[in-house]
Simulated scan of single mutants.
Amino acid sequence: MAVSVIPFLLLFLLSSSAATIDVHQAKALIQTGSLYLDVRTVEEFQNGHVDAVNILNIPYMLNTPNGKVKNPDFLKEVSLACNKEDHLIVGCQLGMRSLSATTDLLSDGFKNVKDMGGGYVDWVKNKLPVNTPLAKEEL
C-alpha cells in the first residue's frame, strides 16, 4: 500500500514547490504588471498566445529532428531577459511544461514565479483575451 502513496507524494511535493494559480488569477496578476512567460515552442506561440502587455516567449522544449528536447539554454535566456525579483507568470499549452519550468526557475533563485495551471488551453476555454494571427487579420 505504501508504494501507491509514493507517486502521489512526489506529485504533491513537485506541485507544492511551484505555486500554481488558475487562469483567472494569472489574468489579474498580468493586468497588475506581472510578466507572462510563455514557454511553448515558437510555432505554438505564433499560432496564438495570451494577450498581455508584458509577454515573453522562451521555449522550455525545442523541436528537433529527434523530437522535443529540453532547451539547454532556458535558464540562461530567462536570466538575460528578466531579473530574479521580477514577477513572472509561466504558462504553456496544458500546464506540464510550465510546471517544470517554474520549478527550474525557483531552483535557480527566481523569487516571484507562479505556474499558470491549465495553460493556454484553459485560458482559451475560459474565453480570456488572446492574440492570434486570425484576430490580427480581423482588425
Rank of each mutant, 00 (worst) to 15 (best):
F8W: 09
F8G: 09
F8Q: 12
F8H: 04
L9I: 14
L10A: 01
L11R: 09
L11M: 09
L13N: 07
S15K: 11
S15W: 07
S16Q: 12
A19V: 13
T20Y: 06
I21H: 11
D22M: 09
D22V: 10
V23N: 01
V23I: 10
V23L: 04
Q25K: 08
Q25S: 15
A26I: 14
K27D: 06
K27M: 08
K27W: 05
A28H: 04
L29N: 09
I30H: 00
Q31C: 13
T32K: 03
G33W: 08
G33K: 13
S34L: 06
S34E: 09
L35S: 01
L35T: 08
Y36W: 00
L37H: 09
D38W: 02
D38Y: 00
D38R: 00
V39T: 03
V39Y: 02
R40G: 02
R40L: 03
V42R: 15
E44G: 03
E44H: 05
F45L: 02
Q46E: 15
H49A: 10
V50E: 05
D51P: 01
A52V: 03
A52G: 00
I55C: 00
I55E: 01
L56A: 08
N57D: 06
N57S: 07
N57K: 08
I58F: 01
P59T: 02
L62E: 13
N63F: 01
T64N: 09
P65L: 03
N66P: 00
N66R: 12
V69A: 08
K70E: 10
N71C: 02
P72I: 11
P72N: 14
D73P: 07
L75K: 02
L75M: 01
K76W: 07
K76E: 12
E77Q: 14
S79H: 07
L80R: 03
L80D: 01
A81V: 03
N83S: 14
E85F: 08
E85W: 04
L88F: 11
G91Q: 02
Q93M: 06
Q93I: 02
Q93K: 07
L94P: 01
G95V: 07
G95I: 06
M96F: 10
M96I: 11
R97A: 05
S98Q: 04
S98R: 06
S98M: 04
L99K: 02
S100F: 12
S100A: 15
S100Y: 09
T102H: 04
T102V: 07
T102W: 03
T103A: 04
T103Y: 05
L106A: 05
S107P: 01
D108M: 03
D108K: 03
G109M: 12
F110Y: 15
K111V: 05
N112V: 09
V113G: 03
D115Y: 01
M116W: 10
M116E: 13
Y120D: 06
V121M: 13
V121S: 11
D122F: 08
V124R: 14
V124K: 14
N126F: 13
L128H: 00
L128G: 00
P129S: 12
P129K: 12
V130Y: 00
T132M: 06
T132G: 11
A135N: 08
E137L: 14
E138P: 00
